[in-house]
Simulated scan of single mutants.
Amino acid sequence: MALIGCILVKPIISQAAGNSEEHVFEAEEDMIAYIDVAVATLWTEPNILREVDQPSASNPVAIWKWKEDMTYEQELQLSGDGMLETQALYGNKVTILETEGEWVKVAVDGQPTPKEELGYSGWMPASQLTYTTKFANKTDDPFVMVDAPTSYLYHTPAFRHQGMEISYNTRLPYLGESKHAYRVMLPSGSHAWVKKADAKTYESQKAIPTPTGQALVEAGKQFLGLHYLWAGMSGFGFDCSGFTFTLYQSHGITIPRDSSIQATHGEPVAYEDIQPGDLLFFAHDQGKGSVHHVAMYAGDGKMIHSPNSKKDVEIIPVTTKGYYEELSGIRRYLSKTD
């Protein structure tokens, strides 16, 4: 057993490149842990899952099945009943704030919000978390970041024995490489391989090159046709602000998690000065009320966004009826380029 501060952690049997085995994790408040599934969904309360939600709360998760099995009405319930907060990706660092039975409330590192100093918070099953000193000691080292919509972990550099499917923007410590693959460390402390065609390596977050606005737009186009998911933060599904947040974070720039807060940061921009990569915000009461949606300007009078539970990521004219009337402001998080 390992003692972390005053926290007792039982030996952890976790997933190695996607193998499902018994997982044991005992957590207490103030403990640092790491996401041990492809994407963890954070709920507003513990134990509020519907039967259809079970694939999202297992280890390993089955996010595609969860999305495919939900009816439109069940999708709407996630937002209408305020069931979800956000998501966190495989290997993300979290701080445990509370525990209740087999559930833990965690704050996600790297997801800024005025609601919680440590990061956006919500409830998730403790079984989707892990901690190994080996992984924790590597989190400030060079890393591999997935830049395809999703990719897979493999047991060998020849891509035999395909394992877990992981998301865009997933970051795992770099251990080495072959001609066509990067060797990465998993939160369990074991290792796996990722296709070079699906990822890039960086020395640190600060080493990620500053993007152009058009580069952000091109990255977003990979997800055209991906169905919306309330609170979504991954290549398995995004909500509107999860989409813009993830595109920026994957290019080395951290912005607030929620659209209402994104709308108060960055540099205000007049519509006549808009350029690709700028964020457009939409508000109730003909643009004068509270912000409820965000999109990214894609150039040529169009915007790219993840709109709502009826739709997929799409590119439409900014002047589209139902949107343009509610345009409340534009913000820039990049330096202006001429």
Rank of each mutant, 00 (worst) to 15 (best):
I7G: 03
V9W: 09
I13P: 04
I13H: 14
S20W: 03
E26M: 06
E28Q: 13
E29N: 13
A33H: 10
I35E: 13
D36F: 06
V39Q: 15
A40T: 12
T41W: 11
E45W: 09
P46W: 03
L49F: 02
E51F: 03
V52R: 14
D53F: 01
S56V: 02
P60F: 12
W66T: 05
E68G: 01
T71Y: 03
Q74L: 04
Q74Y: 01
G80T: 08
G82S: 02
A88S: 09
A88V: 06
V94E: 01
T95G: 08
E102N: 14
E102F: 05
V104K: 00
K105E: 13
V106T: 05
Q111I: 02
P112E: 01
T113M: 08
K115I: 10
E117F: 07
E117H: 04
L118Q: 08
S121N: 06
M124W: 09
P125N: 07
S127G: 01
L129K: 10
T130W: 09
T130Q: 02
Y131H: 13
T132M: 10
T132N: 11
T133N: 05
N137M: 09
K138P: 02
T139S: 09
P142T: 11
P142E: 05
F143C: 05
V144W: 09
M145Y: 11
V146K: 11
V146P: 03
D147P: 01
D147C: 14
Y154M: 10
H155P: 00
F159D: 10
H161P: 00
G163D: 13
M164K: 09
E165C: 09
Y168S: 00
Y168L: 06
P173V: 03
V184F: 04
V184L: 11
V184W: 07
V184R: 05
P187R: 12
P187E: 01
S190F: 07
W193M: 00
T201L: 12
E203R: 12
S204D: 02
K206L: 08
K206A: 15
I208C: 05
A215D: 11
A215E: 15
V217I: 15
V217Q: 14
A219I: 02
H227N: 12
Y228K: 10
G232L: 01
M233Q: 15
S234H: 09
G235I: 07
F236S: 10
F238H: 13
S241Y: 08
T244N: 11
Q249T: 15
Q249R: 14
S250L: 00
S250G: 09
H251E: 00
I253W: 08
Q262R: 13
P268A: 10
Y271E: 15
Q275L: 07
G277S: 08
F281A: 09
H284T: 15
K288I: 00
K288D: 05
S290V: 12
V291M: 12
H292L: 04
A295Q: 05
M296P: 06
Y297D: 07
G301Y: 05
K302W: 00
M303A: 04
M303W: 08
H305M: 01
K310V: 07
V313D: 04
I316N: 07
T319S: 14
K321S: 12
Y323T: 02
Y324L: 09
E326W: 04
L327Y: 06
G329S: 08
R331V: 02
R331L: 06
D338L: 08
